[in-house]
């Protein structure tokens, strides 16, 4: 069954210019899919459109057969689609505990609160040590962890990861992805991942799409994609 299906999606910030120019792709059950492309290909725009921050100009998005384009962001979260955004993602004026607790909004999440909280603290012990502190006092890497932790607290049924590596040191990125791999294996849910660092993304996912200027130009299994010219080009480009 298709979990997420995107049909001929067009989005843009300006009425005259389309950033996504008729994009189509889909994600199957329990699948981890990577969306790779050079800077400005429209990957983050895609993420924002799926989570309802941006309204599409035309096209359709289906989640488990239900049409979700045009829904409000919090309604989409309520369906179980949870995004770890590229920027922000945490509330610096709230404590870490408050940050995590405020993310328990779905009915399912409220029931699984204790279990999820344990999972977060177990995966990111650094957060447990600082749980009473304001999120603003965390380092960049820890903030990303908190952002991921917040997503877990929602009991997601599908996870969107938008450029986790942004602004972080390579070592931190490597650690983060190792933890994420463990987490997603435990949670057993489909993941759509967008990443600047192509190698990491394709290593993380089973299948991938290559995006150029708002369109999908190539798709295939991660291993096959890594050798293609299109991906090599992005690699050199970034």
């Amino acid at each position: 069954m298709k979990i997420l299906e995107v049909n001929q999606l067009k989005t843009g910030y300006d009425p005259e210019v389309d950033v996504l120019r008729g994009l189509s792709f889909s994600i199957e059950e329990e699948e981890c899919v990577a969306m790779v492309g050079a800077n400005g290909a429209g990957k983050s725009t895609l993420m924002k459109t799926i989570s309802g921050i941006l309204k599409p100009k035309s096209g359709e998005i289906f989640y488990r057969g239900q049409r979700i384009d045009g829904m409000l962001p919090h309604e989409i979260v309520n369906l179980g689609i949870v995004q770890v955004p590229e920027e922000g993602g945490t509330f610096p004026n709230l404590t870490i505990e408050e940050n995590l607790m405020i993310s328990c909004r779905r009915k399912k999440a409220k029931m699984e609160r204790q279990k999820n909280l344990e999972l977060v603290y177990q995966s990111f012990p650094q957060l447990l040590a600082k749980k009473g502190q304001l999120a603003g006092s965390l380092s960049g890497g820890q903030r990303k962890m908190l952002s991921i932790g917040k997503a877990i607290m929602e009991s997601p049924e599908m996870l969107l990861l938008d450029d986790i590596s942004m602004g972080l040191a390579p070592k931190v990125v490597e650690d983060l992805y190792r933890m994420l791999k463990d987490l997603t294996l435990k949670m057993d849910i489909p993941v759509l991942i967008v990443e600047q660092i192509v190698e990491i993304a394709l290593d993380f996912a089973q299948r991938g799409y290559v995006m150029t200027q708002g369109e999908i130009v190539l798709e295939g299994s991660s291993a096959a994609l890594l050798d293609t010219e299109a991906v090599q080009k992005i690699y050199i480009g970034t």
Binding site: F91, N93, S103
Partner: peptide
Amino acid sequence: DLGISFRACSVDRITAMLTGINYQ
């Protein structure tokens, strides 16, 4: 919960929406 959501909305509208808070 209302107060914490309120403070969340006050710093970062987008993140608040992505957290599932009904900003409006």
